[in-house]
Computed example of a mutant assay.
Amino acid sequence: MEEFNIHEVAEENNLDVISTTTGKNGYPQSVKYAITGFPNFSEAEKLAEKYGLRITTFWKKAGWQLYVRDRNTTFEPMRISAENYGDDYMAFDSSSAESFYEDEVKPLLDDINSLEDLEKFVSARKELLDEIKSIDETQLVIACHGHYYETIDKETMEWSFDSNTYVIGVIKD
């Protein structure tokens, strides 16, 4: 395999270069560069095969300059669901709009004790339903305590939550 410059390969392919460490606290240790910014997993596979690179998932906490790397290989894009967020979160796909009133509104109406609470409840549920109606089959709407939180892709190469960022990229071993 021919030698290459990771920065030049990234620039030629309109991708990003990140600095990585083996230090689990983000502290510089055995720093190496990696390429990220792939639009999908197949593009990462193509570049990895062409240059003999390993596909892996890197992570860092907010405020860290370096991503943490390990020896694991990643074989597919990240598939994010409500479980990745925690107990108070729910995910809705594009087909959820059909049964939204029966599943997410009607069963909770008996718990509302004032007109003001009803108004807040309806407003939050309306916003949530509007978001669900606006997505396609490749996306999910995430809600927390019945309120819209964010819209995500079901399969992704990068995901951030709770001060952690995860990104799939390629690195030379």
Rank of each mutant, 00 (worst) to 15 (best):
E155P: 01
D130Y: 04
I135G: 04
D153K: 13
S134P: 13
H145K: 15
D153F: 12
Q139A: 08
E155G: 01
A143P: 00
D153W: 10
L140P: 06
D162S: 05
D136R: 07
L129Q: 10
Y149D: 11
D153I: 10
K126H: 05
W159V: 09
T165C: 13
F161R: 05
D162K: 00
Y149N: 14
T138A: 15
L140C: 08
M157Y: 01
C144F: 10
F161L: 09
L140M: 06
S134T: 02
I135W: 02
S163H: 09
E131S: 09
K133I: 02
D162R: 03
L129S: 11
E131G: 07
S134Q: 08
I135C: 08
H145Y: 15
T165G: 12
E137S: 14
I132F: 01
E131T: 11
C144W: 14
Y148Q: 06
S160F: 02
E137Y: 13
N164K: 10
A143G: 07
I132Y: 01
S160L: 06
K154N: 03
V141M: 03
Y148M: 07
E155W: 00
T151G: 03
A143S: 11
T156F: 09
T156R: 11
H147F: 15
I152P: 03
T138E: 15
E158D: 13
S163F: 10
T138G: 11
D136I: 03
M157E: 00
I142A: 06
D153V: 08
W159Y: 10
D136K: 08
S134V: 03
F161K: 02
K154S: 02
Q139V: 06
T138Y: 14
E155H: 00
